[in-house]
Amino acid sequence: MPSDFRPPASTPRRTHFEVCVLPYLDAAYNLARWLTRDDADAQDVVQEAMLRAFRYFDSFRGGDARVWLLAIVRNTFYSLRAKGASDDAHESFDDDTHGLIDEQLSPEARVLLAVDVRALHAALGQLPHPLREAIVLRELEECSYKEIASITGQKIGTVMSRLARARERLKTELSRSSTEACRHDV
């Protein structure tokens, strides 16, 4: 990873890049951090994504720079991950097998949700990548379905069903951890 990279000296192109793209550095890092679940890895992904963005900046034809950058961050993450070929690199995800579960949030889970951000943090980290990226883009970046579809290269219908599944899973996970917490107390 070229972590010692310094962007080139000030040029009009670089200034333009700074104005268009740099405002979304936090968004880029947030997405990378949630995909990698690790500070150092997230920095590597963002660093590489920013390099790619800078390299391809000439091909950016206006439009929404945030969507453009987040799509690059996402692609960078998946390409670096495939290269690293870690144990869960071939996590497959089938949109059809992850059905909706008919379960309501227990009163304990509701309380947990309100007071313990760590539980949500952990549950979010446990989601499969396709669900995690959808919910992070929606809830933390406040992207529209259209924007998420454009970033992830999915159809809007797929985005909607992934968000539904992500939320159902989080609910189930939080209900489970609240039950465990209760048992622990007893």
Binding site: D26, A42, L105, L113, V117, L140, R167, L174
Partner: peptide, 18 residues
Amino acid sequence: DFLQLRAAFTQASLYRRA
């Protein structure tokens, strides 16, 4: 339930800044 979940997402520590 989902409204509650959404409210939980607004807790600032979930957003990771660069």
